[in-house]
Design a protein around this nucleic acid. Structure first.
Lengths: 152, 152
DNA sequence: GCACGATCGTCAGGTACCTGTCAATAGTAC
DNA sequence: GTACTATTGACAGGTACCTGACGATCGTGC
């Protein structure tokens, strides 16, 4: 009846299909490293922002504090991260990558970069820059409330 | 600490942020028309493919048959679509837009196109063509299993 | 000092979505 | 015809995620 996408109408749904597809590909690559896509995203953030709080992570991955906390719990049980009480702010806790966590991340990162590079094969750097600019613009367009709504 | 996105690493997560953001904007526009994003997507598909089955719709929106069926139930209760038994295939049923359904869709469509146009303001047609090509490539990269995994 | 709003992590509950399965039907090979 | 596989729509159950609230803490203004 047609291919995967007949989003003649809305770029929004084309972006959704792209996300779903890329998530699938990345997940497959991450599976061999024992990581989920969400876990990988969190490890990336914690690598770049050591000592971030649960709320920080939640904001950066655009998810609810609760969800982030649950998933960080998984990472903690797996020994990939550790939580320490914040020295100044007694409400929050700082989260750090453990040695094994960093190792796992450094092992997985090249795999993800590889599949992403393979996906973008054939596009020139200029074109990719345009794509990046457009996606950034879209991501910045967040309408008022950043948190709402089901998946589709 | 930074803006919404520091996805220096992975275009995958940039695409996700773009999707979440666009979904929010579109949802806001659709709210005034009493439609959810998922409902709007289904109406679009049914407009373009009248008589599609539940399984057809599910495949096109990349969701489970069950989810599609539940949501179509909502649209049916709202009187926007109607299901008829398929004349040849006694397993499946054909789904059609009702008059009110088509009216609702035709009212909502311009609103969505407007917000999407506003979002892409400032990009040249050539650039948008590149973006579209890239997104299509991504969407087509679906790894083996089309169905799996949580949201993030 | 005290009061006020904002934010922290967390608990309870709900919703959206998915997987797995089923009987019924269709399509094909034999 | 029968046998086998694939597909349809539906049911049951589970998981991921979210919303809404809570006490505790912070920051600021008074």
């Amino acid at each position: 009846m047609g291919t995967v996408t007949d989003d003649k109408e809305c770029s929004t749904f084309l972006v959704r299909h792209a996300w779903l597809s890329m998530r699938g590909v990345v997940a497959e690559a991450l599976g061999e490293h024992g990581l989920s896509v969400a876990q990988f995203a969190s490890l990336l953030i914690l690598d770049e922002h050591p000592g971030a709080s649960v709320a920080d992570v939640a904001r950066r991955v655009s998810t609810a504090r609760q969800s982030a906390n649950e998933m960080l719990g998984g990472l903690e049980r797996a020994g990939l991260i550790e939580r320490r009480p914040h020295p100044q702010d007694r409400r929050s806790q700082q989260i750090f990558l453990t040695g094994t966590g960093r190792g796992r991340l450094d092992a997985a990162r090249p795999a993800v970069k590889a599949v992403e590079a393979r996906l973008s094969e054939g596009f020139t750097p200029d074109e990719l820059a345009v794509v990046n600019a457009w996606l950034s613009r879209m991501a910045a367009a967040t309408a008022g409330t950043p948190e709402e709504l089901p998946t589709l």
